[in-house]
Computed example of a mutant assay.
Amino acid sequence: MGIKLVNIGFGNIVSANRIIAIVSPESAPIKRMIQEARDRGILIDATYGRRTRAVIITDSDHVILSAVQPETVAHRFNDKDNFDGDID
């Protein structure tokens, strides 16, 4: 079984199979979603202190913050050169 991984910046990698949405953090509903995830302890901050540019929502209800533009993450998500192999 192959697992596709997506680089979300600064060496952080997420399983592509778990991603539901990649969105911009600018709207009020997304800001509320981030705050609710922080309160529930399911927020993963992968920005390394930089400005949040993309919010990744997973099927496990986790919310991941990235400092990479949503378009860049989406391009990496669709890129055929991403790791696609067996994890032992």
Rank of each mutant, 00 (worst) to 15 (best):
I30V: 15
S15Y: 01
D45G: 07
V6Q: 04
E36V: 09
A54P: 04
R53S: 03
A28H: 14
D86T: 03
V14L: 14
R18C: 02
S60R: 15
N17T: 10
R53A: 02
I22A: 09
I64Q: 02
V73H: 00
A74Y: 11
I44M: 06
A21W: 09
N78W: 00
V6C: 06
I87L: 12
I87H: 02
F77K: 04
R50M: 10
F10C: 11
E36S: 12
A37T: 07
I34G: 10
D81Y: 02
G2C: 10
I3C: 04
A16H: 12
G41N: 11
Q69N: 12
R32S: 13
S15E: 00
G2W: 04
Y48S: 08
I44K: 07
L5G: 01
S27E: 13
D59R: 14
E26D: 13
A37I: 10
G41H: 10
G9L: 11
A28E: 15
I64A: 08
I42D: 01
F77A: 13
G49H: 12
N78L: 08
F83S: 01
R38F: 06
A67T: 11
D86S: 01
D88F: 09
V73A: 09
V68I: 15
Q69E: 14
R18N: 00
D88Y: 04
S24C: 08
D45H: 09
G9V: 07
A21G: 00
T58F: 03
D81I: 05
P29N: 13
R40V: 07
D59G: 06
V73F: 00
S15T: 01
N12L: 03
L65C: 07
D45F: 08
